[in-house]
Simulated assay, not measured.
Amino acid sequence: MKLRRRFAYQAGALVVAFLGSYMAYLLLSAYARDFMSVQIADSINVALLLGIGQFLLTFVLAWAFGRFSARAIDPLAAQIRDQADGGARSPRPAVDGPAVSR
């Protein structure tokens, strides 16, 4: 139950962050044309930077999802798996520790 709750919280927070950012970009594009057309450099304006920022945000959120999962979700999943196996598995290495092939 705790594993599901953490995963749902994590996924929900990341989806809300992405959709909020994307909706803000769409609304600015539709209703704040003067702001979006402000020139930053020669042929670069605010709209172009915010559009490219959407791609950057996607990668940052994917990285954050992986990092949070490794720290908060994977240990819980391993604990549940070990309990289901009857504790037959050896303890997992630390998240930031060296990689061990199994």
Rank of each mutant, 00 (worst) to 15 (best):
R4T: 09
R5V: 15
R6E: 15
R6M: 10
A8T: 09
Y9G: 07
Q10N: 06
Q10C: 09
G12K: 07
G12C: 09
G12R: 11
A13K: 02
L14E: 07
L14T: 07
V16T: 13
F18T: 07
S21A: 13
Y22W: 12
M23C: 05
A24R: 07
S29P: 01
S29Q: 05
S29G: 10
S29D: 06
Y31R: 09
Y31V: 03
A32T: 03
D34M: 01
D34K: 07
F35W: 05
F35M: 00
M36I: 00
M36R: 01
S37W: 01
V38K: 06
Q39V: 09
I40L: 12
I40N: 08
D42F: 06
D42V: 06
S43W: 08
I44H: 02
V46E: 01
A47G: 03
L48G: 00
L50N: 02
L50G: 01
Q54H: 05
Q54N: 13
F55D: 15
L56S: 07
V60A: 15
V60P: 00
L61D: 00
W63C: 05
W63R: 14
A64F: 12
A64T: 06
R67C: 08
A70R: 05
A70M: 02
A70I: 02
A72H: 12
L76Y: 05
L76V: 07
A77E: 06
A78G: 13
A78R: 14
A78P: 04
Q79K: 12
I80S: 04
I80Q: 13
Q83W: 03
D85A: 11
G87C: 10
G87I: 12
A88C: 11
S90P: 04
P91K: 02
R92G: 03
R92I: 03
R92D: 15
R92K: 01
R92C: 04
P93S: 10
A94H: 13
A94W: 03
V95S: 12
D96L: 12
G97H: 06
G97S: 14
V100R: 14
S101W: 06
S101N: 08
R102S: 14
